[in-house]
């Protein structure tokens, strides 16, 4: 009887209260647990994380590192965009190209971006170009696959209509096929930006780990320095939250773009 009334009472709570309950509980338990530890313990605590966030923001380190990482992601993404789109349109439009390239593409796809890092370091050293390579490699596959899909899905009747009216092949690609592929390309871009952001963190972390905290910077490197040198776990948690927030923002940005550019799809 009591349990029944209790559950109904819980059900009547406003959605916002329900949403906040568990995260709030988690933070409170975490803070209490941290307060039981001796003062010298490096364990992170919510209060210290907030303090660390304020300090890192005030000094400008956090903003600068984030911008550095974002810049690398954008540059790598642009490289992947150019390669993925051009190859994707070719593969989507021509069956011969698709059949011949597909085995090669598919054998590279299961190779994680991070597995390419040792090669990238051998080629470019432990600087920004190595990180860019990883990002471009990671972003390339979702862009390519979705472009191929978008292009091969184009309404054949439209292509035939264009051909009947004497439009040449190149112009058909530019005016019929590419616009029709835009929704898929946008989806591919969103997925690509997601993996690219993960890849840059991994690359910066690994470069930091392997070059002994070099000077290349970025938020991944910042995390590694906090781990290996200053043992600042609160700083690491701040970086993790920033990584999450940026990932969320990138995703939302592309979703908004999809809504704006393709209003008929909603």
């Amino acid at each position: 009887m009591t349990t029944a009334t209790q559950t109904s009472r819980i059900a009547q709570l406003p959605p916002a209260v329900k949403a906040v309950t568990l995260p709030a509980l988690l933070i409170v338990v975490w803070q209490i647990w941290a307060m039981t530890l001796p003062e010298t313990s490096p364990a992170p605590a919510p209060a210290k994380v907030v303090q660390s966030f304020i300090e890192l923001t005030a000094s400008g380190d956090l903003v600068w590192s984030t911008l550095q990482s974002l810049g690398r992601v954008l540059a790598g993404f642009c490289v992947a965009l150019v390669l993925g789109l051009s190859l994707g349109v070719l593969m989507g439009a021509s069956r011969a190209v698709r059949e011949n390239l597909d085995p090669i593409i598919e054998s590279f796809r299961p190779i994680a971006p991070m597995a390419i890092l040792p090669i990238a370091i051998l080629w470019f050293g432990t600087g920004t170009p190595a990180a860019l390579t990883i990002v471009a490699y990671a972003a390339f596959f979702p862009l390519l696959v979705n472009t191929v899909y978008g292009v091969s899905r184009v309404d054949r009747q439209l292509v035939r209509a264009a051909q009947t009216m004497g439009v040449n092949r190149l112009r058909t690609i530019a005016t019929v096929i590419v616009p029709a592929a835009v929704p898929s390309v946008l989806l591919g871009s969103r997925l690509a930006m997601g993996v690219a952001w993960t890849a840059i963190i991994a690359a910066e972390l690994a470069v930091g780990a392997k070059s002994g905290g070099g000077t290349s910077g970025g938020i991944g490197q910042m995390m590694f320095v906090f781990y290996a040198y200053s043992i600042d776990l609160n700083g690491i948690v701040v970086c993790m939250i920033v990584v999450g927030v940026i990932a969320l923002m990138i995703d939302r940005l592309f979703r908004v773009a999809e809504h704006r550019l393709l209003p008929w799809r909603n």
Binding site: T198, I201, G220, M223, Y227, I231, I236, V243
Partner: peptide, 13 residues
């Protein structure tokens, strides 16, 4: 949104 990679430093600790 917090990728698994971002957990590596804390996980290492």
């Amino acid at each position: 949104p917090i990728s698994g990679i971002a957990w590596i430093p804390l996980g290492l600790f």
